[in-house]
C-alpha cells in the first residue's frame, strides 16, 4: 500500500474518532450525516492537492449540518483550538452543532441547504475574471438535489463553463425521513448532471484507494465543463445501529454506544 494511502486511511480513522467525541459532547449534532463525510474530508484535507481551509482554494459546505466533522481538521491545522472542540455546543462556545461562517476556516452558512453551489458559481466566476487558477469545491448532500436552487446553479455553471468548480455529492441516499428513492428519487444522479453539460464521475466515497487518485485528478481538471463527483456513501458509516436505519438522521447515539465505537476504532488505529 502506498504511503499516502496508508496515511489517509489513518487520518480517516482519527477523524471518525474525533467526530464521535464531538457527538458525545454535543448529542444534538447530526452524527449519521457526518459519518458519511469522513473519508471524503480526509482525502480532501490531507491529500495535499486542495486547501480545505479557504486560504488559497475555496471550500463551500452546502450540507452544513453534517460538516461538524470538519472541526477536528481545522483544529489539527491550528485554525481553531483543541479547547474549541471541547466546548462545542456549550454556552459561549465558538462551535455550534452546525458550522457557520463565524468559525475560522468556514466561509459560508450552509444550514439552509442548497445554496452552496450558487455561491460557488459566483466565486468561480470571480476567480476566472481575476485569472486566478484557484479551485472551488462544494460539498453537498444528495437530498439537497430536491431543491430547485441546486438546478438553477447546475444550469448556470454549465452555461458559463465553470471548469474551476468541483461539486462533491455525499450520496448517502437518505434524507431526514427516509431513503431518497422512496421520497423523490434522484437516480441516475451522475447521468442527470451529464445531460446538463457537466463532467460526471462516480466513486465509492469510503474507498480511499479510489478517492485519492480520483480527487487529485479532477480537482485540477479544466475541460470547459464544471465537474461533479457523485460519491456513494453510507449514512451512519461504521455504526451498525445507524447504517441502514431510515431514521438515523435524527438519532443521537448513547454514551455507551459511542464508547464501544471508539474502542473498535482504537483497536484499528
Amino acid at each position: 500500500m502506498p504511503d499516502i494511502i496508508k496515511f489517509l486511511k489513518n487520518k480517516s480513522m482519527e477523524l471518525y474518532k474525533e467526530t464521535l467525541l464531538l457527538h458525545k459532547r454535543a448529542p444534538s449534532t447530526r452524527i449519521a450525516s457526518a459519518l458519511s463525510t469522513i473519508d471524503l474530508f480526509s482525502v480532501l484535507a490531507y491529500g495535499g492537492f486542495f486547501d480545505i481551509t479557504n486560504k488559497k482554494d475555496r471550500f463551500i459546505i452546502s450540507k452544513a449540518h453534517g460538516c461538524f466533522s470538519l472541526y477536528p481538521i481545522l483544529a489539527e491545522k491550528g485554525i481553531i483550538s483543541k479547547n474549541d472542540l471541547e466546548q462545542i455546543g456549550r454556552e459561549g462556545a465558538l462551535l455550534g452543532t452546525i458550522p457557520d461562517c463565524n468559525v475560522p476556516g468556514i466561509i459560508n452558512n450552509g444550514g439552509a441547504l442548497a445554496n452552496g453551489l450558487g455561491i460557488a458559481c459566483g466565486m468561480a466566476l470571480a476567480m476566472k475574471l481575476k485569472g486566478k487558477p484557484d479551485n472551488i469545491c462544494v460539498f453537498q448532500g444528495d437530498g439537497e438535489c430536491n431543491e430547485g436552487s441546486v438546478w438553477e446553479a447546475v444550469i448556470f455553471a454549465a452555461f458559463h463553463k465553470l471548469d474551476n468548480l468541483l461539486l462533491i455529492i455525499d450520496d448517502n441516499k437518505m434524507s431526514m425521513l427516509g431513503r431518497q428513492k422512496e421520497i423523490l428519487g434522484l437516480d441516475p444522479l451522475s447521468e442527470k448532471f451529464r445531460v446538463f453539460g457537466w463532467n460526471s464521475y462516480d466513486v465509492d466515497g469510503h474507498n480511499v484507494n479510489e478517492l485519492y487518485p480520483m480527487l487529485e485528478k479532477i480537482v485540477q481538471e479544466r475541460l470547459n465543463k464544471p465537474k461533479v463527483l457523485v460519491a456513494s456513501t453510507v449514512k451512519g458509516k461504521r455504526i451498525s445501529s445507524l447504517e441502514n436505519n431510515c431514521l438515523c438522521h435524527i438519532i443521537s447515539m448513547s454514551s455507551e454506544e459511542i464508547d464501544n465505537a471508539l474502542a473498535e476504532i482504537g483497536d484499528s488505529l
Binding site: 455561491i119 458559481c121 470571480a126 446553479a153
Partner: peptide, 13 residues
C-alpha cells in the same frame, strides 16, 4: 434564488 447566490459569491471575492 441563484442570482442572489451568485451575487453573494462574487461579493465574497
Amino acid at each position: 434564488q441563484n442570482t442572489i447566490n451568485v451575487a453573494t459569491g462574487l461579493a465574497m471575492e
